[in-house]
Write a protein that binds this DNA or RNA. Structure first.
Lengths: 225, 225
DNA sequence: CTTAAATATAAAAATTCTTTCATTATTGGT
DNA sequence: ACCAATAATGAAAGAATTTTTATATTTAAG
């Protein structure tokens, strides 16, 4: 939808690092705004709502720790701290005052991108998928429909609840017990039946499931993509 | 309360690392159990409920990734992966399959302790309420029970789903339409009926609701506190 | 105070979902 | 290849939930 994945504020007094980070993150499809001090950052967050802040701890004037401590509770934005190598006490404090993650310097840019993406994923708990498509199958949890090779199947509440979980954790195994907990069903045999029914809707060939597979001894898994 | 901060399972095929980690974490007031393979770990988690799992990615037999993927959904336990330096694709996968954090090897033990503490903190404060109490009423969504003045009522899935939403947005009005969407019910009259049933369980005097009130023309609201 | 619209409620009817059961198929280990 | 354990499945029984119906009650407005 948006051209950028997220809008990130990078705060560091060191021009070199700041520009390096900016460049690297930009290449990775983030929109970057920079600030060279906590005070500068403070001003910018009062104007723009960022998706995440990358913040150097050690800066002249107000430190990254102070900034985090003062602002974390007023804004909802996740913060990643850049900390000095070895100074683990800094990191402890950082997490204590509300930072979401930290990265000891010097760091690999890749690492930063990785941690950013991870946090954005977690905080964006709103990005729960409700409509997915793969091969010739479309699952629409809003309309409670599965369309498979032009055939249309209704799904019921139970099936919806299971799919909701599985779709948002593809490749992860769900034991019968855990599925039972999700949908408040007690008997494990009932879950077999529900899976059989689901397969008839999802699978081209239900007898030889491609997507909703059995993990013998463990449970079931949804493979998409 | 407990003598230890948390019970942690350390999984690594390398005896040296495993023992080193164990020793260091023990010194930091964690109770440590070890496993030397994913298979071994699997057995142990079936017996003991750990607070956290530290898991090497690269192991003979089942890899840490596979273990995470297969088990993350069935246990509720946070997982920290130990990954090879440089192998950032491993880390991406790790997070994708549900790991909560990772640490590239070689790592400083201090760093591990820090990340463990951070995760334990976060997971402790999941703020979705599932058990609440007010006046003489206790609602337990886990046990699917409402206890009101020593009377005990079962609640069904529909009721649970509605309460789940309302409890976490008290004071917010829910239109019949929005309730219907939550529980996949079409007819608005049916929702009247469901509310009536709920009131019999929650309210001391269902005819004169104190908690689950009607907002004429708009819907219903749950007032607690 | 009356009235019309909205809500409440009990009970029955209709529908949907869960469980059971009997049988067959598949899988992994020896 | 064989065995035992696990899983799949169709059909039917059993339970539970949703919807309808019919009637009563409450509310806001004039």
């Amino acid at each position: 939808m948006n051209k950028f994945d997220a809008h990130i504020l990078v705060v560091d007094d060191d021009d070199g690092i700041r520009e390096l980070v900016k460049e690297y993150l930009s290449e990775n499809n983030f929109l970057i705004t920079t600030a060279n001090s906590a005070e500068d950052a403070k001003e910018k967050i009062s104007i723009i709502k960022f998706d995440l802040i990358v913040l150097d701890i050690m800066m002249p004037g107000k430190s990254g720790l102070e900034f985090t401590s003062e602002n974390k509770n007023n804004i909802n934005t996740p913060i990643i701290l850049l900390t000095a190598k070895g100074e683990s006490s800094e990191r402890v404090k950082g997490l204590e005052v509300g930072a979401d993650d930290y990265l000891p310097k010097p760091f690999e840019p890749k690492e930063l991108v990785l941690r950013i993406k991870n946090i954005l994923n977690k905080t964006k708990s709103k990005n729960i998928k409700r409509i997915i498509q793969f091969d010739n199958v479309k699952i629409d949890l809003n309309k409670l429909l599965i369309i498979q090779n032009k055939k249309e199947f209704k799904i019921n509440r139970t099936e919806k609840t299971i799919l909701e979980k599985m779709i948002n954790a593809p490749g992860q195994t769900f034991s019968r017990e855990s599925i039972g907990k999700i949908i408040d069903i007690e008997k494990e045999r009932s879950i077999d039946v529900i899976i059989t029914r689901l397969r008839k809707k999802i699978e081209i060939n239900p007898k030889n499931p491609k997507y909703l597979q059995t993990i013998r001894g463990s449970g079931y898994v949804l493979w998409i993509e």
